[in-house]
Computed example of a mutant assay.
Amino acid sequence: MEPTEADSGPPRGMGAPATRPLAAAGYTELSQLADVSEEELKALHGVGPKALRVLREALRERGLSLS
């Protein structure tokens, strides 16, 4: 699936401390996080409760979710 403009990059409200480890792990598009476990994301240094909340909300808006 081609990323849309709304899918490219981190969601609004996501800070650089969470964005960098996501990109380093290969997650550069929001849709790539669909069905990734919260535990896997929490294991990334810099991805905390706020980042997870922002990701859950952004995915929910697109009909997707974390596992």
Rank of each mutant, 00 (worst) to 15 (best):
residue 15 G to N: 14
residue 60 R to P: 00
residue 46 G to F: 01
residue 49 P to Y: 11
residue 16 A to L: 08
residue 57 E to M: 07
residue 50 K to D: 14
residue 8 S to G: 00
residue 3 P to S: 04
residue 46 G to I: 01
residue 8 S to E: 09
residue 50 K to I: 09
residue 41 L to T: 10
residue 65 S to N: 08
residue 9 G to D: 06
residue 47 V to D: 09
residue 43 A to L: 08
residue 62 R to K: 09
residue 50 K to H: 14
residue 26 G to I: 06
residue 14 M to Y: 02
residue 45 H to M: 09
residue 48 G to A: 14
residue 51 A to L: 08
residue 25 A to H: 01
residue 40 E to H: 05
residue 18 A to I: 09
residue 13 G to P: 05
residue 16 A to I: 10
residue 27 Y to N: 06
residue 9 G to I: 03
residue 1 M to C: 01
residue 53 R to P: 00
residue 59 L to Q: 02
residue 60 R to S: 07
residue 3 P to V: 05
residue 52 L to G: 14
residue 5 E to A: 05
residue 61 E to S: 07
residue 32 Q to S: 01
residue 9 G to Q: 07
residue 48 G to Q: 12
residue 61 E to H: 01
residue 59 L to W: 02
residue 49 P to R: 15
residue 20 R to D: 08
residue 58 A to W: 03
residue 67 S to Q: 13
residue 56 R to V: 07
residue 35 D to E: 15
residue 4 T to E: 03
residue 63 G to T: 03
residue 42 K to S: 14
residue 42 K to M: 13
residue 12 R to P: 04
residue 44 L to W: 13
residue 18 A to F: 10
residue 9 G to N: 07
residue 39 E to Q: 15
residue 51 A to F: 11
residue 42 K to F: 12
residue 66 L to W: 02
residue 34 A to P: 07
residue 49 P to G: 15
residue 19 T to Y: 05
residue 47 V to N: 09
residue 36 V to R: 15
residue 51 A to K: 09
residue 66 L to I: 05
residue 38 E to C: 14
residue 25 A to M: 02
residue 61 E to F: 00
residue 40 E to S: 13
residue 40 E to Q: 09
residue 12 R to C: 07
residue 6 A to E: 10
residue 30 L to F: 03
residue 26 G to S: 06
residue 35 D to P: 10
residue 58 A to R: 05
residue 4 T to G: 03
residue 38 E to P: 15
residue 28 T to Q: 12
residue 19 T to D: 12
residue 61 E to W: 03
residue 53 R to T: 12
residue 46 G to K: 02
residue 27 Y to R: 06
residue 6 A to S: 02
residue 59 L to E: 02
residue 57 E to L: 13
residue 25 A to K: 02
residue 20 R to A: 15
residue 35 D to R: 15
residue 66 L to G: 01
residue 34 A to I: 02
residue 37 S to N: 14
residue 24 A to H: 06
residue 59 L to K: 03
residue 11 P to M: 01
residue 6 A to T: 03
residue 31 S to R: 14
residue 4 T to N: 00
residue 18 A to H: 11
residue 7 D to E: 06
residue 18 A to G: 11
residue 11 P to Q: 02
residue 56 R to F: 07
residue 15 G to A: 15
residue 33 L to K: 04
residue 7 D to G: 00
residue 25 A to S: 04
residue 61 E to A: 10
residue 63 G to C: 00
residue 63 G to W: 00
residue 34 A to K: 11
residue 60 R to L: 04
residue 25 A to F: 02
residue 19 T to E: 14
residue 63 G to V: 00
residue 11 P to T: 01
residue 11 P to L: 00
residue 45 H to F: 08
residue 42 K to W: 14
residue 34 A to N: 15
residue 59 L to I: 03
residue 15 G to F: 11
residue 39 E to S: 14
residue 41 L to Q: 10
residue 17 P to K: 15
residue 51 A to P: 10
residue 19 T to A: 15
residue 10 P to D: 00
residue 41 L to E: 12
residue 1 M to F: 05
residue 12 R to M: 12
residue 51 A to R: 11
residue 54 V to E: 04
residue 48 G to N: 07
residue 64 L to Q: 08
residue 27 Y to C: 05
residue 10 P to A: 06
residue 58 A to S: 13
residue 42 K to D: 11
residue 55 L to G: 02
residue 62 R to C: 01
residue 64 L to K: 05
